[in-house]
Design a protein around this nucleic acid. Structure first.
Length: 306
DNA sequence: AACTGTCCCTGCAAGC
DNA sequence: TGCTTGCAGGGACAGT
């Protein structure tokens, strides 16, 4: 699942590949990928232009074209961008293929089995109308402006459970299920802790964890899961998965404290992994119905190792 | 304001 | 073995 570190890795790849290269071929075959506009709009918007910059906001990529238009690319669950030789075979579920001039010519493929991803060409002056969710995105957690006071203000002014708060793209943009779990674990904050009740030291730890986890994951070019499809532009997997401490480790002994066994609960419909020792339950738990139902199950998670 | 459920879609795993 | 069924998961949105 591409989250901020994976999208940032792809962005850096795009800067090194497509910027300054003219587009001289566009093939749109996946209608769902261009559902917000049309195949014609994407074709017309790209053909003959040259990318001049590639930016990222949260999990959204935006490419600035020399025409003045921008391209928004969102990979959602299963989207991939691949930089391949112009004569390479297209993988199944290739929905958009863009050919770049130069020697040799190369193609950028948008591949997306589940078709949740999107490609939109838009006028940046109209972004609020054309891509409202991009316009409403919260602060980017690896930007310099995201300092401790900014985080403290986000937390203090609402009473929300921490896991869904971290996933709310309107507040902080770019954190998904994997990194939310890893961040909360590193900070020692329970996923159901209430944001406005965090102690100052918890806020400090949370701010440190967000910065460290995301920066380290970017350094390792993101997380490629066994069952997931994330690879970088050149088809290489990310190495951060080996450093996951809770995500995907339910039932295992905690690598940090060596005492807790990683538990799994469902928080707002999302699988959540945490260590009950490192992340103590808040004193007055406010738990979702789904979480209550799940924790009623008596099955103790099997221990492994240790 | 905050949370819940629904939808979109495919691949994969479990169950028969 | 082969079919059917269920589920995961990002994010928008509608409903409570």
């Amino acid at each position: 699942m591409p989250e901020l570190p994976e999208v940032e890795t792809v962005r850096r790849g795009l800067v090194d590949t497509i910027v300054g290269r003219r587009i001289d071929g566009v093939a749109v075959t996946g209608m769902r990928t261009v559902r917000r506009t049309s195949a014609e709009a994407v074709y017309d918007g790209l053909m003959g232009t040259t990318p001049v910059a590639v930016r990222r906001r949260g999990k959204y990529l935006t490419v600035e074209l020399d025409s003045g238009y921008h391209v928004m690319i969102h990979l959602r669950m299963s989207g991939q961008l691949l930089w391949v030789p112009a004569d390479a075979d297209e993988p199944v579920h290739t929905h958009v293929a863009v050919t770049f001039g130069g020697k040799p010519a190369r193609r950028l493929l948008f591949v997306d089995p589940r078709t949740f991803g999107e490609v939109v060409v838009y006028d940046p002056a109209d972004v609020a109308a054309e891509i409202p969710e991009l316009h409403r995105l919260g602060v980017d957690p690896i930007a310099d402006v995201f300092d401790r006071p900014v985080l403290a203000a986000i937390l203090r002014h609402r009473s929300r459970r921490m896991k869904p708060l971290l996933l709310d793209q309107h507040l902080i943009a770019g954190i998904g299920n994997i990194y939310a779990d890893e961040i909360l674990h590193r900070a020692g904050v329970h996923p159901e802790a209430i944001s406005s009740r965090l102690s100052p030291s918890s806020v400090t730890r949370l701010h440190e964890a967000i910065g460290t986890i995301l920066a380290t994951a970017v350094e390792h070019r993101g997380s490629t899961l066994a069952d997931a499809r994330y690879v970088d532009l050149f088809g290489a997997p990310g190495a951060y998965r080996e450093r996951h401490r809770v995500y995907g480790r339910a039932g295992e002994r905690c690598l940090t404290c060596g005492r807790g066994v990683i538990r799994r609960l469902t928080e707002t419909g999302r699988a959540t992994a945490y260590c009950p020792v490192c992340q103590r339950r808040p004193f007055k738990p406010q738990r979702s119905r789904a979480a209550r139902v799940e924790s009623r199950e008596p099955t103790p998670p099997p221990t492994r190792g240790a």
